[in-house]
């Protein structure tokens, strides 16, 4: 009686192996649709970019001659590319902290239980529903030195004739301000979601203990929101490194390359100068830059995150 039972409870090795193969196959079949999509639109272009970055190319983007790391060496000596790096880093520093802090303030306000707060929540998150192109055009009109609303308002205070998008000293800041405005919708919504996920009894307990608002913010809200803040910062950072649309519409990288961030520089190299090898090399460098920054963030930022 024991023998057949034991056979039944643990099948022989070939049977087990067959079953394992079958379950693996089944898993792959489930993954197949996304694997195919990822391969066509992500993995293939990525590998192709890496491949092209080692070649000199003709105007159609066909590799002509293998040049090794010459594209990279050239780039790192190129003044224009170094200017692009500087512009990109400045742009990231201007936009990411500002969007996260502003969105956090808005989310904290919108999380209060007040009459009509739903309306404000909708307003604050509404920029998420606007395309980069549409919002850029709106900002372009607002920045216009002669008909723009910003200069009109400033002229009331005696400040006149600010060349928002044409002054190399201000252009990057102008683009950053419009980008912050565009980013806030998404960041706000995610942070508000994070805030609403915090157990309300923790706040009730704090009310009974009678702690002040700032103490509560510092000791309860921010630590419990830290996973969301971490996510939002990481995503914003990556997003900021990859900004393209608003630059293209507002400044086209100008004036004097002041807003020529890396992605725009890649675009210009590839589709205006038809220099695909150099553009690919820049793309690879950008990829690794984002990779390193994100890795560092996970390494050092995540320590301060309290997952529940």
């Amino acid at each position: 009686m024991n023998a057949p039972l034991s056979v039944k409870s643990s099948p022989s090795v070939p049977v087990r192996r067959k079953r394992a193969v079958w379950t693996t196959l089944e898993g792959i079949v489930y993954l197949l649709p996304s694997l195919i999509l990822f391969s066509i639109f992500l993995f293939y272009p990525m590998l192709k970019t890496v491949y092209l970055s080692f070649y000199a190319t003709d105007h159609q983007g066909n590799p002509v001659q293998f040049v090794g790391i010459e594209n990279f060496v050239y780039l790192l000596k190129d003044v224009n590319f170094l200017q692009s790096i500087k512009a990109t880093l400045l742009f990231v520093c201007y936009t990411v902290p500002a969007s996260v802090v502003l969105a956090l303030c808005l989310a904290l306000m919108a999380n209060e239980k007040l009459k009509g707060i739903g309306l404000f929540r909708t307003f604050f998150s509404s920029t998420m529903g606007m395309s980069v192109a549409a919002s850029s055009v709106i900002w372009m009109f607002m920045y216009n030195p002669s008909i723009g609303v910003i200069n009109k308002v400033l002229s009331l205070f005696g400040i006149s004739d600010v060349q928002w998008l044409l002054d190399p000293k201000i252009a990057l800041i102008s683009v950053s301000i419009s980008t912050i405005w565009m980013n806030i919708g998404f960041t706000f919504l995610i942070l508000l979601g994070g805030l609403q996920n915090i157990d309300p009894t923790l706040y009730e307990s704090a009310r009974i203990a009678g702690v002040s608002y700032w103490y509560q913010l510092r000791k309860v809200t921010l630590p419990l929101l830290s996973p969301t803040l971490f996510f939002v910062t990481t995503v914003s950072l990556i997003h900021s490194f990859q900004t393209f649309g608003q630059i293209d519409i507002l400044t086209k990288g100008g004036p004097m390359d002041a807003t020529n961030v890396i992605v725009y520089s890649i675009y210009k190299d590839a589709f205006i100068n038809y220099n695909f090898g150099s553009a690919s090399a820049q793309a690879v460098l950008l990829f690794f830059a984002i990779l390193v920054v994100t890795f560092l963030q996970f390494k050092f930022g995540e320590r301060k995150v309290h997952y529940q």
């Binding site: 009894t201 923790l202 307990s205 419990l224 309290h306």
Partner: peptide, 9 residues
């Protein structure tokens, strides 16, 4: 509180 309301961090 019913769920103890302990601060997880």
């Amino acid at each position: 509180f019913q769920n103890y309301a302990l601060y997880p961090h």
